[in-house]
Simulated assay, not measured.
Amino acid sequence: MHIDRRTLLAASVAALSLHASGCGAATPAFPLPQGFTRFPIWPGKAPGGDAVTVIEKEALRRPDSPPDDTYFEHVVTPTLTMLRPKKPNGAAMLLVPGGGYIRVAIGLEGYEIARRFAAAGYTCFILLYRLPADGWTAGAEAPLQDAQRALRTIRSMAPREGFDPARVGVIGFSAGGHLAAWLATQDAKDSYQPIDAIDRQPLGVKIAGLMYPVIMMDGPFSHTGSRRQLLGETPSPERAKAYSLEQNVAADAPPTFIAHAVDDKTVPVQNSIAMMLALKRQNVPVESHFFEAGGHGFGIGAKSAVTAAWPDLFLAFAGRHGV
């Protein structure tokens, strides 16, 4: 099953028209960077939005940011933004930007990352996902619904785009690392009711990359901002444990690459250490790099030269595992 170009274009126009005509109408979008294309992942409106009244917004990440260094808040129309490689290697990568589950930093951890991996041959897809505190019926599961639908959409496009649907990886950053790990390393259970042929595509990825990820939702090393957005101010211990990914790694989780700076003052490095050990307990292949310096959110434009090697390390890992 695949989506043809005409269907995608029609779906995009229809979704954007709906989006602009009522509750949740977006502010004017920043132009897409050259070479990127964007389309919605759901036909019509995203599921469970009857009580959603937020207004989607895109803005510069900092006042002095270049035009493509943006973030989204209050996402109403989840999308994939695709960048095709000049020399395809037959694989695809789903990129999941972070933002503490309160925004999605699509510039720093989307466009920049896609350019680097497209240069290595990957067809790249950046996920713009809904945020859990915006009133969606699914609540905390809304971002997972988007991640699962995005993965299936990518697989459905494989014949047209010329990559192997079995060679799809995911890489997530910060809170996007939590969502990527949720998608990749937990038992693959549907988070929404199937709606069309795309939902017959399987879940599961070939490899996962977790960059300075939020993993824990309980204990002293949890990222309180992400936990608050995902689970509310005072989640029960049982609920916090259920969303702490190191406590719920599936035995069939894919080979996983982890990178974190030890001096990260936003998401403690103990999140990545705990995830590495959880994967090892399940005998899942795992490679971890704990950099001396780099802080949080080092992305591709490394704040510290110490972290600059991570893309090459990840690419070598991906190659060893068939992606």
Score class of each variant (00 low, 15 high):
residue 10 A to D: 14
residue 15 A to W: 07
residue 15 A to H: 15
residue 18 L to N: 12
residue 21 S to Q: 11
residue 22 G to V: 07
residue 23 C to N: 14
residue 27 T to R: 10
residue 32 L to V: 06
residue 32 L to H: 09
residue 36 F to R: 12
residue 38 R to N: 10
residue 43 P to Q: 02
residue 43 P to D: 10
residue 45 K to S: 09
residue 46 A to Q: 09
residue 48 G to D: 06
residue 51 A to G: 08
residue 56 E to I: 02
residue 60 L to G: 04
residue 61 R to I: 11
residue 63 P to Y: 13
residue 63 P to S: 11
residue 66 P to K: 11
residue 67 P to D: 04
residue 67 P to T: 06
residue 74 H to C: 13
residue 75 V to D: 03
residue 79 T to I: 03
residue 79 T to W: 08
residue 80 L to A: 04
residue 84 R to A: 08
residue 85 P to S: 01
residue 86 K to W: 07
residue 88 P to Q: 02
residue 88 P to T: 01
residue 90 G to Q: 03
residue 97 P to F: 11
residue 98 G to R: 03
residue 108 L to W: 15
residue 108 L to V: 15
residue 109 E to A: 02
residue 109 E to N: 00
residue 114 A to L: 00
residue 115 R to N: 10
residue 116 R to N: 01
residue 117 F to C: 08
residue 117 F to I: 08
residue 121 G to A: 01
residue 127 L to S: 08
residue 132 P to E: 02
residue 137 T to H: 11
residue 138 A to L: 09
residue 140 A to G: 06
residue 142 A to F: 06
residue 142 A to C: 11
residue 143 P to A: 00
residue 145 Q to T: 09
residue 147 A to S: 05
residue 148 Q to S: 08
residue 149 R to M: 00
residue 152 R to N: 03
residue 158 A to G: 03
residue 164 D to G: 06
residue 168 V to I: 15
residue 170 V to S: 00
residue 174 S to I: 00
residue 182 W to H: 10
residue 184 A to K: 09
residue 185 T to D: 11
residue 185 T to F: 02
residue 191 S to L: 00
residue 191 S to D: 05
residue 195 I to S: 13
residue 196 D to F: 13
residue 196 D to A: 13
residue 196 D to M: 14
residue 199 D to K: 02
residue 199 D to I: 06
residue 204 G to S: 04
residue 206 K to V: 04
residue 211 M to H: 13
residue 212 Y to V: 01
residue 214 V to R: 01
residue 214 V to M: 01
residue 218 D to K: 04
residue 230 L to F: 04
residue 236 S to F: 01
residue 237 P to I: 01
residue 243 Y to W: 15
residue 244 S to W: 12
residue 245 L to M: 13
residue 245 L to R: 11
residue 247 Q to C: 12
residue 250 A to K: 12
residue 251 A to M: 00
residue 259 A to L: 04
residue 260 H to N: 10
residue 262 V to P: 00
residue 269 V to A: 10
residue 276 M to I: 05
residue 284 V to E: 09
residue 295 G to R: 15
residue 298 F to H: 06
residue 300 I to P: 05
residue 301 G to I: 13
residue 303 K to D: 06
residue 305 A to S: 13
residue 313 L to D: 06
